[in-house]
Design a protein around this nucleic acid. Structure first.
Lengths: 348, 348
DNA sequence: CGCTAGCACTCGAGGCGCATGAGTGCTAAT
DNA sequence: ATTAGCACTCATGCGCCTCGAGTGCTAGCG
């Protein structure tokens, strides 16, 4: 563990703050003048030399100012940072942005992502919960044409999921309706994660009991649950904001990053890392993530929930140099707000 | 109408071809040497001077080669261009890309968009058809909680659309089921575009006939159809490919364009322009579109259909300087392929 | 009369040198 | 321990120059 005197911390804090603001290496004079330290620039220089030795700062070249290293940034985030409290006005703005709210779940998440991106001027991201955490509400089979069946699954919270499947034999709509009724009863209120087991269990019973009348229904459901559920998905919005960061004027660098976004599984893994941790805002700096091509970005994230169950994670992705002191409160507030919106008004 | 000698056309064609390939202004020598014209560079120079006078070419600065103007490009596209025939191999590749096909409609369109972007190394775009062209198949109301109802609408082709609405009074699921049954019968096989009228008509009847039993169902449906349907949507994929074009290394320019993409209604309008024209590949050059911020891009598009009905438009968006001779066949082929995939295998 | 060879001219791109100044590290004095 | 002072470093920007790709024009050729 690193031990710093309070002056060291002040200096490190000042360097990070200034660097975040300007994007330029910070010199000793600037700090002595602008950050209310009661010492001369020469002293600052000595301190900075120490910090450099500790690996918290670095010099792009000999005659330039200092820039925080990733380690220095991490230390700043862990120990020194002071948040800008969110103004009532800003809170109101975010709240208002949520106002024109559809009741559609996916829309809500996408909008959240957009709000994050707009308020932080970076890319906003929302991890869409695995379906498995929600409870079964309703299932419906619809015969689209011969041997093609559309299945619609609705969760208790109003999430709609649909897949169409090809089935070997043609099944009439009447028959399918029977299946629906049967399954709706069978699966009532079961968490979607447990449906598979429930079905298996039932299949064993059925085989013996009433002559496989519904075994086809069970098999069908089984097959559907096999694939399409399970996997999480994400919404990334406002990637264009990343273009505004001077660090990404280099097109090649930017492209590498956006290409990494293309492959969403990477980002999902990144977000998953923060999902395990029970709560609060988390920050992952690219280099810590061990994910190639993501080394130049940072993620500020917070889980959101409905009542007691963790649903997913939302956050902001930007360059390592971003205004953490402002974005962190925004992310936190947004997560709270979203959780609040998801709270069932009346549960019955 | 412009009249050109065949040599003029050859020269113009060569300039455009070379410019498209290299992105650099083209000099007279290059053309004389590389494009099999049997005349000297001096002659070419004279021809080019003529073409410039006609507004088909222009010079970035006095001592540079020529670059086609938008007018020149248009002329080239209308009269001179020769398509590279799509190799059987390429066809096979595109076909294969479609292979791993979900039966989900939206997925299919999104994938199409991605395929276009990948094969043309530009942004792919697919206009998602207005729901109104398809026919009614099934409707279902589900009570999510008190006073919140989820409506699911399924079209004959397996398209799923859902919205949730807040209703003033609480309605029991049993009651809602009645509505569903009633409406399913009432609206059977009606084009979604005509549902509104059908409902209005029915409302008039109902009011008199059986005591407004279903008037609530009608009103509900009415309200839903009011909003959420009707509007088209698009999938744009592979915007990152645009970064590869040297004309977009200038970040500001790129940002303007991507911001224009953000506001999808603009692009929709652009695509709509080509939807009216009954068929075949169409090309719109940015400056012709009268849409601000889109002046630096070109669109190559083709409608796709199911059987006889036009469903939507797909295409490729890129800089004005792109490889039309290759992209046009790709777009055409893809549109055909998609139409083919959408063809109902067995209609019943 | 159309084509071409030749030539003078234009002008952007890129390389070089130099001055500038922000910033450093070190040393000696307080 | 802090600071003033100084010599040193090096990226940046500017002016200058050269180079060469490309042009337009003119005169001569078939």
């Amino acid at each position: 563990m690193i031990e710093l005197t309070s002056r060291d911390e002040e200096v490190l804090g000042a360097v990070v703050t200034d660097y975040i603001k300007t994007g330029e290496p910070v010199g000793s004079r600037t700090i002595a003048k602008r950050y209310g330290l009661k010492v001369s620039s020469a002293t600052i220089r000595n301190v900075m030399a120490d910090l450099e030795e500790m690996g918290l700062l670095q010099q792009p070249h000999t005659s330039a100012g200092r820039v925080p290293t990733e380690k220095g940034l991490r230390f700043y985030l862990d120990s020194i940072i002071q948040f800008k409290k969110l103004q009532g006005q800003e809170r109101a703005m975010i709240r208002r942005a949520f106002q024109e709210t559809t009741t559609d779940f996916k829309d809500l998440l996408r909008r959240t992502s957009r709000i994050l991106s707009r308020f932080c001027q970076q890319a906003g991201v929302v991890l869409w919960p695995k379906l498995t955490v929600t409870r079964f509400k309703h299932i419906e089979f619809i015969r689209i044409r011969a041997r093609q069946i559309l299945m619609i699954l609705i969760s208790k919270s109003g999430l709609v999921h649909h897949t169409s499947i090809d089935w070997e034999e043609d099944i009439s709509q009447d028959e399918l309706d029977k299946y629906s009724r049967y399954l709706n009863e069978l699966l009532e209120d079961i968490p979607l994660g447990e449906v598979k087991e429930r079905i298996l269990e039932e299949m064993r019973k059925e085989k013996v009991l009433f002559d496989q009348l519904y075994s086809r229904a069970l098999e069908m459901t089984q097959r559907i649950f096999q694939y399409s559920l399970g996997d999480a998905d994400i919404y990334i919005e406002g990637q264009i904001n990343l273009l505004k960061n001077p660090e990404f004027t280099d097109v090649d660098r930017l492209r590498r990053i956006l290409e990494a976004f293309e492959d969403k599984s990477r980002i999902i893994r990144l977000l998953d890392m923060t999902l395990t941790a029970s709560s609060g805002v988390q920050i992952i700096l690219g280099p810590e993530s061990d994910l190639a091509d993501l080394s130049e970005i940072g993620l500020i994230s917070s889980p959101y929930r409905r009542g007691d169950t963790l649903l997913g994670v939302l956050g902001v992705i930007g360059p390592l140099r971003m205004d953490y002191s402002r974005i962190i409160p925004v992310v936190e507030f947004t997560a709270d707000l979203l959780s609040e919106l998801l709270e069932d008004p009346v549960e019955d």
